[in-house]
Amino acid sequence: MTIKFNRFLLIACMALIGLSIKTARADEWDKEMILKFSTPVQVPGKVLQPGKYVFRLADSSSNRNIVQIFSVDENGKQKFVSMIETVPDFLTQTPDKPIVQFAERHIGDPEAIKSWFYPGDNYGWHFVYPKSEQLESASLVVPPAAPAPAAEPALPEPPIETAEETTDETPVVIIEKETFISQVAFAPDPADDDLPGADRVLPETAGHSAAFLLAGIASIGAGLFALSLSLRKAQSSVNR
C-alpha cells in the first residue's frame, strides 16, 4: 500500500514539475510578442488596422513556422485574426531586442511585414506573400518608438527602440512583453447601440443527450455488475 502511495506521489510530483516547467517556458516556446501599430500594416491575406496585436507560434512541435496573430482589445482580450504559414528567416547578428522588418510598398498602400525575430534568436519568421501582393525590393528594419498611450499605464515598461530613418509612411511599432488573458471577445462598434436582447444572455446550447446516453450506459453497467455479484453470492452460499 505504501509503495503504491509513493508511486502515486512520485507521478503527481513529476506532473506538477512538468506543468510548472511548461508554464515557465511558455513564452520561449510560442515566441509570444505584442506589437502595436500606429498605421495599417499588411500580413499575407490581411491588413491589420492600427492597434495592438499578439504574434505567436502555433503550439505544434512538428511545425514551428505557423504564426498566429491575435488582436488585443482595450480590456486585454484577444481575438483570433489570422494564422499564417511562414518560412524561416535568418539574421547574422543575434538580436537582443524584438525586430520587425517591413517591406516597401506603393505609396498609399499599407506597409507589409516581411519578417519578425524574437530576442535571442537568429532565426525568425518570414511572411510569404502571394504574387498579387508581391513585396517590393528593399526592406526596412523598423523597431521604432512611440510613447505608450496614457490609457495603459499598468503595462510593464516595453523595450522601445527609435528608428533613425523613420518616414511618415512607416508604421510606428511598439513591441511589448506581458502576460496574456486567454479569454477572447469582440469589441463592438461603440456607435452601435442596437444590441439585440441586451438584457439577456446567449442561448443555452449545451444539450443533454450525451449526458443521458452516458448515464444510461453507466446505469445498465452498474445494474449488470450488481446482478452478477448477487449470482456469485448465491452460488457461494449454495456451495457452503
Binding site: F212, L213, A215, G216, I217, A218, S219, I220, G221, A222, G223, L224, F225, A226, L227, L229, S230, L231, K233, A234, S237
Partner: peptide
C-alpha cells in the same frame, strides 16, 4: 443477494429509461 438483484434490476431499468 435479493437486495442486489433488486438494485441491479432497478439500475438496468433506469439505464434503459435514459437510453
Amino acid at each position: 443477494p435479493r437486495l442486489l438483484i433488486c438494485l441491479g434490476g432497478a439500475l438496468i431499468l433506469g439505464g434503459a429509461a435514459f437510453l
